[in-house]
C-alpha cells in the first residue's frame, strides 16, 4: 500500500515534470520564433535600381519597421550555400536563380501582416513571404497541449491524493484504539494528526524524489540524442533550470502527501 502511494506520487510528479519541462521549452521556442519573424520582400527580376532605391526609402521611413536590409542575389546565394552546408551544389547553377530581396523586421510581431501588405503594394516588389502562420500554428498547438497536460495532471493529482489518503486511513484504522484513547485523555487533534501527516509527507517526498531521479536519468540519457537529432534545438531550447524544477517537484510531492493524509485523519477525527 505504501509502495502504491509512493509510486502514484512518483508518476504524478514525472508527468508534472515532463509537462513543465516541455512547456518551458515551447514557450522559449515560441518567443524566439516570434522575435525572429522576418518579412522577405522579393523583388521582380526586372526591377530597376531606381525602384530599388525608392523601396529602400519607403522602408526606412515606415514607423512599423524596425530594420530593413537589402540582400542582393549574390549574397542570397552565398547565404543559401552556408545554410545548407553544401547540400545543394551551387556550382551546377549556370546563373543565380535568386531574386534580390529586402529582409525586413517589424517593430512588433503583431504588426507583421500589415507591414507585409504595405510592402507588397510597392512597385518592383514581386512577392512577400513571412512565417507568421507557422508560428501561430505552433503557439496554438502549444496551448492545446497545455490544456490536455493540465487536465491529465489534475486527474493524477486527485488520484495520488486519494491513494495517499487511503494508505494513511489504513494506518489510522490500525491505530484507532490509540487515537480514541488520545482523544479521551485530551490530546489536541494537531497532536494526534502530526504523526500521520509526517507519514503522508514522507510518502510524498519519497515519491517526488523517485520521480526527480527518474526524470534526471531520462534527461541525461536522452538530451544528447535530442540535440543530435534536432541541431536547431541547441540554439532555441534553453534548458529549464533543472535544480529549481526539481525543488518545485519535491515541494509539490510533499504537498500531495500532507493534503492526502490531512484529509483522511481529519475524516477519522470528526466521526
Amino acid at each position: 500500500m505504501q509502495a502504491t502511494a509512493v509510486g502514484t506520487v512518483a508518476i504524478t510528479i514525472i508527468l508534472l515534470g515532463l509537462f513543465l519541462f516541455v512547456r518551458g521549452a515551447l514557450t522559449e521556442l515560441g518567443g524566439k520564433l516570434l522575435d525572429q519573424i522576418e518579412v522577405s520582400a522579393y523583388l521582380r527580376s526586372d526591377v530597376t535600381p531606381a525602384q530599388t532605391a525608392a523601396i529602400a526609402r519607403f522602408l526606412k521611413q515606415d514607423p512599423h519597421i524596425a530594420s530593413a536590409q537589402f540582400v542582393p542575389k549574390k549574397q542570397g546565394l552565398a547565404e543559401l550555400r552556408t545554410r545548407t552546408k553544401g547540400a545543394i551544389d551551387t556550382a551546377l547553377l549556370t546563373e543565380n536563380p535568386l531574386p534580390d530581396k529586402f529582409r525586413i523586421k517589424a517593430r512588433d510581431p503583431d504588426g507583421v501582416p500589415a507591414v507585409a501588405a504595405s510592402v507588397g503594394r510597392l512597385s518592383g516588389v514581386d512577392n512577400v513571404v513571412y512565417g507568421q502562420k507557422i508560428v501561430q500554428r505552433l503557439l496554438q498547438l502549444g496551448a492545446v497541449l497545455r490544456r490536455i497536460g493540465i487536465g491529465v495532471i489534475v486527474v493524477f493529482f486527485v488520484v495520488a491524493g486519494i491513494i495517499i489518503s487511503n494508505t494513511i486511513r489504513l494506518t489510522v484504522y490500525a491505530r484507532r484504539r490509540e487515537i480514541a484513547i488520545m482523544q479521551l485523555v485530551g490530546a489536541t487533534s494537531t497532536y494526534i494528526r502530526l504523526p500521520f501527516i509526517c507519514e503522508g509527507l514522507l510518502d510524498g517526498v519519497i515519491g517526488a524524489l523517485l520521480a526527480v531521479a527518474l526524470l534526471a536519468a531520462a534527461r541525461a540519457a536522452l538530451w544528447p540524442r535530442l540535440l543530435e537529432a534536432l541541431p536547431w534545438a541547441q540554439l532555441t531550447l534553453v534548458p529549464v533550470d533543472v535544480r529549481v524544477l526539481a525543488a518545485q517537484l519535491v515541494v509539490v510531492g510533499a504537498a500531495i502527501g500532507v493534503v492526502g493524509s490531512w484529509i483522511s485523519v481529519g475524516r477519522h477525527l470528526r466521526t
Partner: peptide
C-alpha cells in the same frame, strides 16, 4: 467548539 474539546477532557477523567 470542536477545537476546545481536548481542553475539556483535561478537566475530567473517564
Amino acid at each position: 467548539r470542536r477545537n476546545r474539546i481536548a481542553a475539556l477532557r483535561r478537566h475530567l477523567g473517564v
